[in-house]
């Protein structure tokens, strides 16, 4: 385990860590409903390029966001090895397309550092801080900012 997890503090929070186009991200595990393998989506007309379409999640119509494209890291050509992290953001359920889910970590509030200046501007807009774990920088994602725009319009 990592040094962040060994420090037992009441403020520890579990986060799910995942990789998108070679970069590590995480967000609160409470937002994750489930993780599924890639399934073919139904395309949505007039959608933003990062909206991969919609999938059927036990009877609900759930949009899938290509996080890589959303963060300006280039579109993913999704295949069987990719995962869709089903998240609940506010009252909406959204699937986030990622390369792989790497870990579940416990992070203390005080370990979260401000976003460094070196981060690419595109990414910076979607993260609320960074955590360094075993020399790796994990970006904490602000989920409300990755919502597809069609949602923000109606929300």
């Amino acid at each position: 385990m990592t040094d962040t997890t060994t420090r037992t503090s009441g403020k520890g929070r579990e986060v799910v860590a995942f990789r998108v186009s070679g970069q590590d991200f995480c967000f609160d595990i409470m937002s994750v409903r489930e993780i599924r393998g890639w399934t073919e989506t139904t395309l949505l007309p007039h959608a933003q390029p990062y909206v991969k379409g919609v999938i059927n999640l036990r009877g609900s119509v759930v949009p899938v966001v290509d996080l890589s494209e959303r963060l300006g890291l280039g579109a993913i050509e999704p295949g069987p090895r990719h995962v869709i992290i089903i998240t609940v953001i506010g009252s909406q359920t959204v699937g986030l397309l990622a390369d792989v889910v790497s870990d579940i970590l416990t992070v203390n509030e005080e370990d979260i550092q401000p976003v460094p200046e070196i981060a690419a501007d595109e990414v910076k807009a979607y993260i609320s801080g960074v955590v360094v774990v075993e020399g790796k920088m994990i970006r904490k994602m602000d989920l409300s900012r990755v919502l597809p725009t069609a949602i923000r319009e109606v929300a």
């Binding site: 139904t42 059927n56 009877g59 759930v62 069609a150």
Partner: peptide
């Protein structure tokens, strides 16, 4: 609209026999 929003030209969605939307 529950999870996404209104799409012009589209009234709603449905789920077909193969489970796809």
């Amino acid at each position: 609209e529950t999870n996404y929003g209104h799409v012009h030209g589209v009234a709603a969605a449905t789920i077909l026999g193969d489970g796809r939307i």
